[in-house]
């Protein structure tokens, strides 16, 4: 069960990577920081306002931060090289992390469980599981469904997909490609922040908890094939379950090293991902 809980979060981070990758062809190394920022903001706001409002506000604030980052750092760059973008997003992630360190300090924070408490559990056909796990999996599924609907049914979502498929052609049809990129940063910041809020009662949150999540989210994104959000969900589950099994065999301290080793193995052997096709990968820029 722990594997599925973590897997959901990895999948959410991976989907965040994919949205921005599809819109711009870049990997946003600051994706994990959105998750941290969402969790941290919600914890702080929850001291003043009720939990659902605090989560909503945290998502909105992180979305604004996402838009701000795109407008200040990304929008005006003229055909930047991949290496340059990698380093810029790493710089952004350091900036967010250090700002968080100076705002919140090094203390570990957590939201309360949405329903019940950390001790209580729900009987589900003879299996007792914590209520927060249901919240994580439920909201995770909801996010995936909502994104699917957004990209397939709404005008805005279709415009974003058009930009991802062929930016020049989309421009010719009158779509403002620049705004679509900003929007992709906002959407991926929003779902990252939501992910941060739902997971933080279980895993807690700290100023530097973004980086490991970003690496695992990237692992999942690669595992599922970069840009493929449906496969990312499956890949997230695989990594989450593999990780929880690895703890049985190896010391917990090596847990993170395991998932990175998996990442390296995939990169070396089949960079198109287990669900992706090698031909399609060759056409992508990276």
């Amino acid at each position: 069960m722990a594997g599925i809980t973590y897997g959901t979060i990895y999948a959410i981070v991976a989907i965040g990577f994919n949205i921005i990758y599809n819109a711009t062809g870049i990997i946003n190394f600051a994706q994990g920081e959105f998750v941290m920022l969402g969790g941290m903001t919600a914890v702080t706001l929850n001291q003043f306002i009720p939990l659902p409002l605090a989560i909503l506000a945290a998502v909105v604030i992180t979305t604004i931060v996402g838009a701000f980052i795109e407008i200040v750092f990304i929008r005006w760059l003229h055909k930047p090289s991949v290496l340059r973008m990698v380093i810029i997003t790493i710089g952004i992630s350091i900036l967010i992390r250090e700002t968080a360190l100076h705002i919140w300090g090094e203390s570990v924070k957590a939201l309360p469980y949405f329903t019940g408490s950390s001790g209580s559990s729900i009987n589900l056909g003879g299996v007792y599981i914590s209520s927060q796990i249901l919240w994580v999996v439920g909201i995770g599924a909801l996010v995936v469904a909502a994104l699917g609907a957004f990209f397939n049914l709404t005008m805005l979502g279709r415009q974003m997909r058009a930009c991802a498929a062929n930016r020049d052609a989309a421009r010719l049809c009158g779509i403002d490609a620049g705004n679509m990129v900003t929007l992709s940063f906002m959407v991926s910041a929003a779902i990252g922040a939501l992910g941060g809020c739902i997971i933080c009662p279980i895993t807690y949150v700290q100023y530097d908890s973004g980086t490991p999540l970003a690496i695992k989210g990237f692992t999942v994104a690669i595992l599922g094939g970069l840009g493929n959000s449906t496969a990312a969900v499956g890949a997230g589950m695989i990594l989450g379950i593999l990780e929880s099994f690895s703890i049985m065999v190896l010391p917990t301290a090596y847990k993170e090293a395991i998932s990175i080793a998996i990442l390296l193995a995939i990169l070396f052997v089949k960079p198109s991902g287990i669900f992706g096709s090698a031909e399609a990968a060759r056409l992508k820029e990276f």
């Binding site: 990698v86 690496i215 690669i222 090596y254 990175i260 390296l264 990169l267 820029e285």
Partner: peptide
């Protein structure tokens, strides 16, 4: 590897050593 993958792979190597 190139680009993102190279950056991520070397970053991953560093984190493995750290861990």
């Amino acid at each position: 590897l190139k680009g993102h993958y190279l950056a991520m792979a070397t970053l991953g190597f560093g984190i493995i050593v750290y861990r």
